[in-house]
C-alpha cells in the first residue's frame, strides 16, 4: 500500500551513448522518459530499479522527421506532439489517433510515444497502431544500433524485445497505404483511459480492391498482436461493409483472450470484432 519508492540512484544523461553506458554499467538500471508508467510502478514498489537513467535532457530526441519513405519519431516526442503533428496525421492517422486517446492531458504532455512502446502494456493504444503501420523500432545498445520490426518488438505483458542496456531511440513509420485508423473502448467508457479493447488497421486499396492490410489488437490478450486472420480475409475483397463484417469475425483467431475487471473473455472477443470492424471501416473510408 505504499506509494514511496525504494531507494534508487538517479542520473540525468546528456546523450544516448551515456545512457547506454549507464545501463550497461549498472545492473537493474532503468531508462526514464516521461516517467508516466515508470514512476507509478516504482511508487507501488512493483519495480525497484537501482538507478533511474533520465534521458529527458538528451538533445535531438524530440523531433518528428520526414525521411522520405518514412517518418521518424524520436524517443522524447510526447503523446501530445505525436497526436498533433501534421506529418503523423497525414501519413499515420492510426498513430495520431492512438496518441490522442492515450491517458489524459497531463499524461499526454509528459509521456512519450516511444516510452509507451517500450513499456509494452497489454492495453496501451499506440502499440496497436505501430503494429498495424508496420513500424520499425530502432534500439541503441553497447554494440551499436539495431532495427526491430514492430512484429518482433512486443514479447509479452510489459516485456519488449529491448535488452536491459538498450535505449529505444526512435520509431520509424513507413509511409504509404490508402489509410489507417485506430479506435477503442476505454475503461471509463467511450474512449477514455486504457483500452478494454482496441484495434488499429492499415489498408492499401487499388482499383476498388483491398490489396494489403495490417490489423492489430490491444487490450484483449497478453500483448498487442496482429489479427492475421482478419488481414487474410479482407485482402482481395472490395472492402465493403459486408466484407469488413466477415473479416472482423476472425479478430481473435490465434489470440488468447484474457478476462479482467472490464470484460469477460466473451465480451472482449466480441469487442475485438467490433473495433476491428470500426478501425477497418475508418481506414477504408
Amino acid at each position: 500500500m505504499t506509494m514511496y519508492p525504494r531507494k534508487f540512484d538517479y542520473v540525468a544523461v546528456g546523450s544516448v551513448a551515456e545512457a547506454v553506458e549507464a545501463l550497461r554499467a549498472t545492473e537493474g538500471a532503468k531508462v526514464m522518459a516521461g516517467g508516466m508508467s515508470l514512476l507509478p510502478l516504482m511508487k507501488m514498489r512493483l519495480l525497484s530499479p537501482t538507478t533511474v537513467v533520465d534521458i529527458g535532457r538528451v538533445p535531438g530526441l524530440d523531433s518528428i522527421e520526414d525521411r522520405g519513405d518514412h517518418l521518424a519519431i524520436g524517443a522524447l516526442v510526447r503523446h501530445a506532439d505525436t497526436a498533433a503533428n501534421e506529418l503523423v496525421r497525414t501519413h499515420a492517422p492510426a498513430l495520431a489517433t492512438a496518441a490522442s486517446l492515450t491517458g489524459d492531458v497531463q499524461v499526454r504532455n509528459r509521456g512519450t510515444t516511444c516510452g509507451s512502446l517500450a513499456h509494452a502494456d497489454l492495453a496501451a493504444d499506440q502499440t496497436a497502431a505501430v503494429l498495424a503501420l508496420g513500424a520499425t523500432l530502432v534500439a541503441q545498445g553497447p554494440s551499436g544500433t539495431r532495427e526491430i520490426p514492430a512484429d518482433e518488438f512486443f514479447v509479452d505483458t510489459l516485456t519488449s524485445a529491448l535488452e536491459p542496456d538498450e535505449v529505444l531511440v526512435e520509431v520509424r513509420i513507413p509511409k504509404g497505404g490508402t489509410g489507417s485508423a485506430y479506435d477503442k473502448l476505454g475503461r471509463r467508457g467511450g474512449r477514455s483511459d486504457y483500452a478494454v479493447a482496441g484495434a488499429a488497421a492499415w489498408v492499401e486499396r487499388s482499383n476498388g480492391t483491398v490489396t494489403a492490410a495490417r490489423v492489430a489488437l490491444t487490450g484483449v490478450g497478453t500483448k498487442p498482436t496482429r489479427a492475421r486472420g482478419v488481414e487474410e480475409a479482407i485482402v482481395g475483397t472490395d472492402g465493403s461493409a459486408s466484407a469488413i463484417e466477415a473479416a472482423a469475425r476472425r479478430a481473435v483467431e490465434g489470440v488468447t483472450v484474457l478476462e479482467d475487471l472490464y470484460g469477460s473473455e466473451e465480451y472482449k472477443a466480441h469487442l475485438a470484432e467490433v473495433y476491428v470492424a470500426r478501425a477497418l471501416a475508418a481506414a477504408l473510408g
Binding site: 489524459d104 471509463r188 467511450g190 477514455s192 483511459d193 486504457y194
Partner: peptide, 10 residues
C-alpha cells in the same frame, strides 16, 4: 487505474 472515476471530459 482500476477504480474509474468520471472526469469533466467524460
Amino acid at each position: 487505474m482500476d477504480y474509474p472515476m468520471p472526469t469533466a471530459g467524460d
